[in-house]
Design a protein around this nucleic acid. Structure first.
Lengths: 160, 160
DNA sequence: TTTCTTGCAAAGAGTTTGCAGCTTC
DNA sequence: GAAGCTGCAAACTCTTTGCAAGAAA
């Protein structure tokens, strides 16, 4: 993890920004919660635990900065808040998401899967693709099992 | 177009809603600007031309209603505003978008293209897909040509 | 010193809500 | 006249900005 911090520090420096304590605390929170899709507010609350004097505006400014440097990706699942997702190192493409419409959980797909599709789009629409956003909305395994169990329960009840 | 209004009217009725003059005006604006990706404000301004007394809140309420009935899809290209996109009749899947990072134009792709990908996702991640959002960010044909011309201009200049 | 960065508070943008009045059945 | 719908204004949420003070080069 320290290496990643160092690399991010270099990225900041090469764009003439500093890795201030506030920025570092913010980056650490993102690294420690890599699996989650935190909103600015979420990040703020977590950073506050390490650096209580930090202001929400600083968090917003840092997240904006990290987005600009492509350290994180700003995503939006349609719930009115922007979320920030650490970009995997060396990942050529932005990963995809599976959003469960039952429980709201968000899973990530690292695999590209879009190579063929992008090829078609570039040749057929003459569109030079730089980035993509792919989100599937549906029902996660857990919620599917939940429904199955309920149906089972109901049939049990009907027997009685 | 009248048929589509009629069908939307029926959809509303079957959910016990009425097609009031304000709602009809809103739907007509959406039909007349099917190619665009209007924000609530955009819709409001256009509706005001037909029905000047309409309020912004009514437009928001109508768009929410239409989203609920799946007449329109609410989308977000990350610029802070929600946009509303009329769902194509009979379209099994939500269409895709090509957003130009130069000029901001948004083109639509009707083709599904994701059949194979969805199959993989459903079997490998056991995720029951209900809907998807796919947006490519890149450079549209026009802006590519613009860049080409500029480069040409520059080389012309260099000659002199 | 000069430049960058921060925290705070205020402002801004987009959206939602409460409510009284108006329609419609 | 009950139920649904509307316009208006106020409220709310998320995000950005202005500014004086602080930290770093």
């Amino acid at each position: 993890m320290e290496n990643r911090i160092d690399r991010i520090k270099k990225q900041l420096h090469s764009a003439s920004y500093k890795l201030t304590p506030q920025r570092e605390a913010t980056v650490r929170v993102l690294l420690e919660n890599e699996e989650d899709h935190l909103s600015a507010e979420d990040v703020y609350l977590l950073v506050k635990e390490k650096a209580p004097e930090i202001g929400l505006a600083t968090v917003y400014r840092t997240l904006e900065l990290l987005t600009e440097l492509k350290v994180v990706d700003k995503i939006n699942f349609g719930d009115g808040v922007s979320r920030y997702d650490l970009r995997k190192e060396g990942a050529a493409h932005f990963h995809h998401h599976l959003v469960c419409i039952e429980c709201g959980s968000v899973a990530e797909i690292e695999e590209d899967l879009l190579e063929d599709v992008e090829e078609i789009v570039e040749s057929k629409w003459k569109f030079k693709i730089k980035d993509h956003r792919l989100t599937f909305h549906g029902i996660c395994v857990k919620c599917q099992e939940k429904v199955d169990n309920e149906q089972e329960d109901n049939s049990e009840l009907n027997k009685v």
